[in-house]
Amino acid sequence: MTGSATASVTLPADDQIMIVREFDAPRELVFRAWTEPDLVRQWWHAGRGEMTVCEIDLRPGGSWRYVMVTPDGTEVAFHGEYREVAPGERIVQTEIYDPFPDAAAVDTLEFEDLDGRTRVTMLVQHRLKEHRDAHVESGMEDGLQDALDLLEGVAQSLV
């Protein structure tokens, strides 16, 4: 094991969530692990079940579909469509959680070469946008990060 740092999660805007993680492997390998079904099946389940479906048609307009079944039989299914594919560098895709078909998020994935290591940045543009629009005059351009920092403390006090 490489013992890489944990993922950093931030909220750049109230409708966005960003994850950044570095991997101790070259960019081509990280991209392969992210886009080849046989490899994705080995990690996307996060240790919480088994991937029963992993379909990847990696080209603009191509679709993807992941299904995981947890030990208690719950099926967790996501699907979407690729909008942009720059091999080894960048993927833009839609992401829909099956129970909420109207709520598509758009994920932008960047794979950055750090001299043999790789930084992956995943920006999820969430469906909270419709809620943000209602608030556009109220100056929430600060995003939710401050609130998250605040809540960190609040939640700890609740334990």
Partner: peptide, 23 residues
């Protein structure tokens, strides 16, 4: 809200640990 973000973070951290092994 806090849980929502933390859950997301936890899921992805665990995925990434699996991905480390694949790599």
């Amino acid at each position: 809200i806090h849980d929502w973000v933390k859950d997301f973070e936890r899921t992805w951290s665990e995925r990434f640990e699996q991905l480390d092994a694949v790599l």
